[in-house]
């Protein structure tokens, strides 16, 4: 299997993680499509640097989350996207099944967290172990545990606050 074939297989096996990260880090559908495209472009560019010290999905998470952060630089300077939107339209079909509503709800909670907590909680939601979260984020396993406990507290407070304000 040549490099390109190996890459395509890796992407197809892990496309779910790319779409989930894009969904969490962008609000508009056009931004999401741009981010998916940018993640795949950057994954391809740095595919040679994947040294198999971690699993391919751990490496892809790391690259994709980093790309999402770099993409934030341009998020508020939106221009028309490149002509890949049409080809990504399959992704839009999921809107019909309440996908967007679920995303909205998730974003509402995740957007109240800072970017570090947002990344950690996303990995936690995706059933990543503390070890993998530590590998991806670059913070210690102990700190991952502490942070997740704090995030739970933050979310509880947020719910109480929303309840008191009648939202």
């Amino acid at each position: 299997m040549d490099k390109k074939e190996a890459f395509i297989t890796a992407i197809q096996n892990n496309e779910g993680l790319i779409y989930k990260i894009a969904a969490v880090y962008s609000n508009a559908i056009e931004d999401r499509n741009d981010l998916v495209q940018e993640i795949i472009y950057q994954l391809w560019k740095s595919f040679d640097s994947f040294k198999q010290q971690s699993s391919i999905s751990t490496w892809m998470y790391r690259v994709a989350m980093n790309v999402a952060i770099y993409q934030l630089k341009t998020a508020k300077r939106k221009v028309t996207t490149v002509p890949l939107d049409e080809q990504l339209s399959n992704f839009h079909d999921t809107e019909n099944s309440g996908f967007e509503e679920k995303l909205q709800l998730l974003r509402q909670h995740l957007n109240n967290l800072n970017l570090l907590d947002k990344g950690i909680v996303m990995l936690y939601l995706d059933n990543k172990s503390y070890e993998e979260i530590a590998q991806i984020t670059g913070i210690s396993e102990t700190n991952v545990g502490t942070k997740i406990s704090r995030i739970k507290e933050k979310l509880k407070k947020q719910i109480i606050k929303n309840y008191n304000y009648g939202t």
Binding site: Y41, S97, L103, L125
Partner: peptide
């Protein structure tokens, strides 16, 4: 939130979006 996330994951995984041609273009 985890339940909502898992539901979302299932929906994404049920419907593949990226074929070889799209990946090549990207």
């Amino acid at each position: 939130l985890k339940n909502t996330w898992n539901n979302m994951s299932n929906e994404v995984q049920q419907q593949p979006h990226l074929n070889t041609e799209k990946i090549n273009q990207m």
